[in-house]
Structures are given as structure tokens and as C-alpha cells.
Amino acid sequence: MKDYDLTKTSIKTFTAAEQEIALSTEDLHVAYGDHEQIKGVTLQFPRYKISAIIGSSGSGKSTYLRSLNRMNDEIQTARVTGKIMYRGLDINRPNIDVFEMRKHIGMVFQRPNPFAKSIYDNITFAPQRHGIKGKQELDQLVETTLQQAGLWNEVKDTLHKSALALSGGQQQRLCIARAVAMKPDILLLDEPASALDPISTSVVEDTLAQLKEHYTLIIVTHNMQQAARISDYTAFFHQGVALEYAATSKIFTKPAIQATDDYVSGHFG
């Protein structure tokens, strides 16, 4: 693999007047034990936009994304340092209520992981735990979120059947609906379409494009066409460093960094 200069970066920043920022990191480091995998990433994610994170396998995309809602707390060896700013609050501080925070920053994982419950319960489970009780309200929630995830027509007659009986693509859309049902501010998605066939993929992409109206989305993807199709901004990660961050059109047409150019044109490594 070619050696790229990891100190030469080109990171877009936004002024407050120009763009409201939903979430940002400042000099974020993540280490598993002694191995530092994210080496100081500073990025701003604008509100009501889709930001994509691209980069080769092992470059730290998932590690970075999972830090944003503190899912790395679950990994005993992981240590996250630096700032994660959300609504003027550094949510990487130890005294933050991570469970409350995760209601605002939701996550969809690479592999679909519905609960072993009915489709209906998958969506209503967490909202119920958080205090939404009325049956009408819950019914309404199930219908809207399934529609938003493009799954309603396929499952509206089998809402009380097991979610495990759905296909992989349907399960993933259910997981998106489940995350959306929490009405989060920000939705983190780790390669949400990587296990899907082309048709399901395009349904999911349409879904994401619609969700952008109400949510801020940050999506990790291996699929560069997908990043180009749906995202407004794109960050390119390499060996734990964000080398370039800019408007997606710029990343794919005239990137500022050689490594980005090589990666998006397929001459990488």
C-alpha cells in the first residue's frame, strides 16, 4: 500500500452563520488497549444533512461512528478521549447520562438486529419503556415509522408476526423504523445497506433521503456510488485519520488530497 502523508489533511469547517452544526468532534482519539485506532479526528456534522464516511476496511470508520453515541463504552478495552459536542454539551464526559443521550442519537447497525419479538413490538418496545403508553399513539407510531422506512405495505397485515421471519432487507428497514420511532435528533448508520440486495438498497436510500428532512444522518458506507448519490458531505478516513472532509460533489470530482483522489478513482493501495 502506498504511504500517504497523514499530516496533510483538508477538513471543511462551517461558521455558525453559514450552517447549524448538529454534532461535532474535537481531536477525538479512540484506542483499544494500546492500539490507537482513531488518531485525533475533528469534524462538524451539519444539521438536516446526510454526511457520509468512506474509507478502506480497517480505517476506523465504525470505531469513530460508535464513539459518537458512546457505544464504545460497551467495549471494555476501548478508551475514547477528546470532545464530542452535542447542543453545546461535551457528551464524552463521564458524568453524561448515556442512556438519555442515546435517545437523541440513535444508531442502525451493519447487520440487522431486530429483537426476537413481533414487528409491532420491535418498534413500540423502547418508546413504551420511555413512557408512551396509549394504544392509538403506539399504533400511529408503528404505521408512520414503517411507512418512513418503506416497509409498511409489505408488513401491514403481519404486524404481530415475529420480526425474525422477515427477510434480511426487511429486517434492516425494520431496524431503521425502530430507530426512527425514538424520534432521535441524529441517526448514525453503519453500512446499513451492505447486507441488502440492490432493490432493498435503493428503498433504504430513498428512505434516508426522506429522513433528512427531520433528522441529521451520519452514514458509514463502503459503496462510493451510494455516498455520491445520497450524501451532502463526505469524510474520507485513512488509518484512523480523517484526511479530507468536504461537500460530496467536491470529494468525488476534485478532491484536495492525493489519497482521496486515489480512493475515489479506484487507484488506492
Partner: peptide
């Protein structure tokens, strides 16, 4: 039980 199930719950803000 797969750890993905735990992540699913925690990511929904459940304790």
C-alpha cells in the same frame, strides 16, 4: 444471545 441484541437495546436508550 448475540451481542448485537444488547447493542440494539442500548442504542435505543434503554438502560
Amino acid at each position: 444471545i448475540s451481542s448485537m441484541q444488547r447493542e440494539a437495546g442500548l442504542a435505543l436508550g434503554l438502560s
